[in-house]
Write a protein that binds this DNA or RNA. Sequence first.
DNA 1: ATCATAGTCGTCTGCCTGACGATAATCAGG
DNA 2: CCTGATTATCGTCAGGCAGACGACTATGAT
Lengths: 253, 253
Amino acid sequence: MPYDPSAFPAFAVTVDLVVLTVRRHSLCALAVRRGEPPFKGRWALPGGFVRSDEDLSVAAARELAEETGLLAHDPTLPVPPNAAHLEQLATYGDPKRDPRMRVVSVAHLALAPDLPAPRAGGDAHSVRWAPVESLLDQEGVFGRDSDLAAPLAFDHARILADGVERARSKIEYSSLATAFCPQEFTVGELRRVYEAVWGVALDPRNFHRKVTGTPGFLVPTGGTTTRQGGRPAQLFRAGGATLLNPPMLRPEV
Amino acid sequence: MPYDPSAFPAFAVTVDLVVLTVRRHSLCALAVRRGEPPFKGRWALPGGFVRSDEDLSVAAARELAEETGLLAHDPTLPVPPNAAHLEQLATYGDPKRDPRMRVVSVAHLALAPDLPAPRAGGDAHSVRWAPVESLLDQEGVFGRDSDLAAPLAFDHARILADGVERARSKIEYSSLATAFCPQEFTVGELRRVYEAVWGVALDPRNFHRKVTGTPGFLVPTGGTTTRQGGRPAQLFRAGGATLLNPPMLRPEV
DNA sequence: ATCATAGTCGTCTGCCTGACGATAATCAGG
DNA sequence: CCTGATTATCGTCAGGCAGACGACTATGAT
């Protein structure tokens, strides 16, 4: 049977990115300001059309590189210096999610260490890191950041919320939190990642016992650092283990 | 800026379903035999095109109902008698996954109690439950079931494997295993679900202690049954709790 | 020198789990 | 009726792990 294009509806397919990082003790997401209608002037998640010869993960990695300069991390290769964790999040296809046409968006979640500065595709004003609470707070916050108070464009608030929840739950049972850290980091820095992502305070002594006692989670590099002040801390790299068993559960409420 | 259809590539969007159930102590998936090329005569996952006015979850629920007569379970409504759990799994968009054209498939995972018999959309011969191992076993098993030995069409083996892994991990930390049970069930029946999904044997005493001791997991209905033989067992319904904390971890190895 | 800060090591207690003994309530068959 | 097979359910015990928290260590700031 020959291929009949009229036998099915045509869709546009995009990738949208939830890019998360931890800056100044808070979980931040990358947001871009829309320069075109609809939602012109509003903040949105970075993203773009999937090209006709691209796999979805390739499109997501391309968008990530365009927006941040980060490379997606292929687990089969050694970790390049500018690597981010990238995984598919979920797909959103409400017929009315884009008023122009029928768009299905395959959202991806990227986790990155704190970056020097967002590098826009030519227009640095249109890209910024923003704390996820301010992006998700639909009520709006009046004051200096009132330009951020408007809800995100399209269904991006929902997508961001899903991405944040995925990150929050995934660091419980995997070593993914190290994706927020530079290649070498201390136990305290890793703990502050958990604290920022979960929004809770953790006991430094129990946390230290847990992460150093889990085989394959952390590998000491031999060096120490004092960049946080106080007693110098051992430096570690992420070990090969990806699954934490038993998991490190979020404290309840 | 007006909408310009030539500014982006057009995709076909489908939903594919991984429908799992437990029959005769083994985890089974719904498979349909393809009647058209490509992969004519091979087994595949049920699925179809998303209509132009349909959300993805609606399309998945429609396909599920067409193939099985099951209703997707809307968590905000009381559970109808023929309800199945339905959730989005992942999206597959390799440019070469369908030789005819560019198709992006949003796979969904459905979990259902053991059903009387698959009800095909007019052709009962083309749909069947098959143990997931036989569908995933690429080497093929010679013998009576050799028609099942050929690998699934398209990338459906990958999708099925992802769905099975999702189900296996999700019953660890949620009450989702009850989706495989009828409305009323015994602790032993629930244990046999875990054993079938994980492919391991569990200690009946420890399992009983765990599930009856987790608040909100099981609600006794007062009745008892003896349909398994042996001492009569209490009947339960699924409680309101959806998250198991602490989780019930798979035995290692 | 003193203090503040952060890191690291220990201890104790309670909870949960895995291993497994024991008892209870049914059915099949002699 | 009695016996054994089968399944359900309750209990016990030891080990592991997590939360709470004391104590000590090594730095920088004043």
